[in-house]
Design a protein around this nucleic acid. Structure first.
Lengths: 152, 152
DNA sequence: CCCATATTGGCAGATAATGCCAAAATTTCA
DNA sequence: TGAAATTTTGGCATTATCTGCCAATATGGG
């Protein structure tokens, strides 16, 4: 992982579908070594994959919610149970374990407020062992980038 | 936006760099109409772009933080000032306006705890007009997907 | 049931990816 | 410092993919 690899990474974070030729031009390499570096980053797991960025509203999911959840008990069984149940819920796009007052933060997308109520009542509460749920709806997004800052 | 378009979107959320031929095969179309639908989704802004998913730790940014910030005043000038300053900070990958106790939630990546202290002291505090800052470090990530749930 | 419109599939020329080999650059060790 | 060993690079030829055009098929309205 040198500066050139990080340059390749940032270029692909900005445009994940750019051709290898364009990528090579952007990082001042010829296509062959550029492609070899790219494959190395993929094979090593540094580059986990590629994804389309989609307008959730246009797709039909206008509501994004950050949900913070604290569990009543933190024994291994309850934690594993909660996490495996979370995994199975399609509306949950992200779930992180956090420091601070809450245990988990989820990012959830739903078609409407009624669907969010359904989600909490029929997907989250039935898991059991939940001490508290704190809901924050996203009004708007001020900034969203996938490109990491330059380091070194 | 029909079921086929949503199928295309989900396929590209799962693998943003798949070839048009593979995409066409996955959604049961031949390459030409598939490409035409794809371009329409891009041109309409539904497909905003494509991005590489990167292991932040392998890149050199092992610390991810969610920061919740409340402003002292909410007049137009202070809000615009805050948001434009946030835009210019490379470590801030996301900034959302939220309902609930806080005004903003940021996702920030840094190389270490010292860099986070620097970020708060030299990037956030100097903006001024900040009532409170609540920091939650990400211990681990239980789930992370880009693929939207199937709807309709 | 038929017509107008939208969508699809196949084909051909242009563009891009990929594996191989020699040349250049970098590192290692005396 | 200098020379060998290793790594990385660039160019080329083959293979695969993209993309624009046209006829054929499917869809929806009267």
């Amino acid at each position: 992982m040198d500066a050139k690899d990080r340059q390749i990474i940032r270029a692909l974070q900005a445009n994940g579908r750019m051709t290898n030729q364009d990528l090579a031009a952007e990082v001042n390499l010829s296509p062959s070594p550029c492609l070899r570096r790219l494959r190395n980053l993929e094979d090593s797991g540094t580059l986990r994959g590629y994804s389309a960025e989609v307008d959730a509203k246009a797709y039909g999911l206008p509501i994004t919610v950050f949900v913070r959840i604290r569990l009543e008990r933190h024994n291994e069984d309850d934690v594993r149970r909660f996490e495996s149940r979370i995994h199975a819920i399609d509306e949950v796009l992200e779930c992180h374990v956090l420091t601070g007052a809450s245990d988990y933060q989820l990012r959830v997308v739903v078609p409407g407020l009624d669907a969010y109520e359904d989600f909490i009542r029929h997907r989250i509460h039935p898991i059991g062992g939940i001490a508290s749920i704190d809901t924050s709806f996203v009004y708007s997004t001020v900034k969203k980038t996938n490109v990491f800052p330059v380091i070194d």
